[in-house]
């Protein structure tokens, strides 16, 4: 089974008078790992909730595998949203929740779920309510991975895990994705840890779509230019500067946009050093208010 394509059109989500998602549109090709990035309260969880049929949009639509997912038996069975605290039977042992998900998900791999429970060192004999935040996050990861849903979404689930568990999760995710390609959306603040997994990024800011690009395109559209302030100012004229800092006569700016080869050559010729920018740095700069 391959992954589902996602199409979001003019999506708006409201909570009373508060607009959480404002007229957002984007498309995701099937079989990719996408980062859904945004600051706190940017609308990431609300967007994922609509994709997972957790709620209906106030306006606009989403199509998954070409159809509206809300209350659609086939699509809902193939869409999995793992939320940080987990949607599990908290007063039961993990076997009860695993059984629930196994009976619900046609793509569930019970043997893989058992392997994952052991890999994360989860206690099978205690009720989930006694688990620490990290253990519950790990159990959410187990459910998301073993479900192998054609559209699998993890909403900050790894925040509660300690560093070794997070890296174990990233490795398991990547290995399982290689064997069972599907569409995966990761939402996280820990961008530097997971950006290596992304094939594309969607950035939402203040409820609005900031960008939706393949990750390599995103990276190549950003650059740092470092050198004498006068030269840096000269070569960045007309470019979109999203961050700037000075140290004595030296200035470093981060630019974002279509950087053509001629501009870069001119910068080098002027003695300005050009460097790359990570996804996290670009994300931070692009979502800072002064850069907008």
């Amino acid at each position: 089974m391959s992954g589902y394509a996602v199409s979001v059109r003019d999506l708006t989500v409201r909570y009373g008078r508060t607009i959480a998602v404002d007229n957002v549109s984007f498309d995701l090709e099937p079989d990719g790992i996408y980062g859904l990035l945004g600051r706190n309260g940017s609308g990431k969880t609300s967007t994922l909730s609509v994709l997972a049929s957790m709620r209906r949009p106030a306006a606009g639509s989403v199509l998954i595998d070409g159809v509206e997912p809300f209350e659609n038996e086939r699509i809902m069975a193939g869409v999995s949203l793992i939320r940080e605290s987990g949607d599990v039977l908290t007063n039961e042992k993990i076997a009860a929740s695993l059984s629930y998900y196994e009976q619900a998900r046609p793509t569930w791999d019970a043997a893989f779920a058992d392997e994952l429970v052991d890999a994360f060192g989860l206690n099978r004999k205690k009720p989930i309510s006694t688990f620490s935040r990290g253990q519950r996050s790990a159990f959410g990861a187990v459910i998301g991975l073993a479900g192998r849903a054609p559209l699998t979404m993890f909403d900050e689930v790894y925040l509660g895990m300690d560093a070794p568990s997070r890296y174990r999760f990233y490795d398991l995710l990547l290995a399982d994705y290689a064997e069972h390609p599907r569409t995966i959306i990761l939402s996280s603040h820990l961008i530097s840890e997971i950006e290596r997994l992304f094939s594309g990024v969607v950035i939402i800011d203040g409820g609005r779509l900031l960008l939706n690009e393949e990750v390599e395109d995103f990276r190549t559209r950003g650059a740092t230019l470092t050198g004498p302030a006068a030269q840096v100012d000269a070569v960045t004229t007309g470019l979109r500067v999203v961050a700037s800092r000075s140290l004595g006569p030296t200035k470093e700016v981060t630019v974002y946009g279509d950087l053509d080869g001629a501009a870069l050559d001119a910068a080098r010729a002027a003695g300005v050093a050009i460097g790359g920018v990570g996804v996290q740095d670009l994300f931070v700069h692009l979502t800072e208010k002064e850069s907008r």
């Binding site: 049929s53 809902m76 069975a77 193939g78 869409v79 949607d87 039977l89 629930y100 998900r105 849903a149």
Partner: peptide, 11 residues
């Protein structure tokens, strides 16, 4: 919440 999160319908 577990029911819907597991991919089953409200119906």
């Amino acid at each position: 919440n577990v029911h819907v999160a597991a991919g089953l319908t409200r119906r």
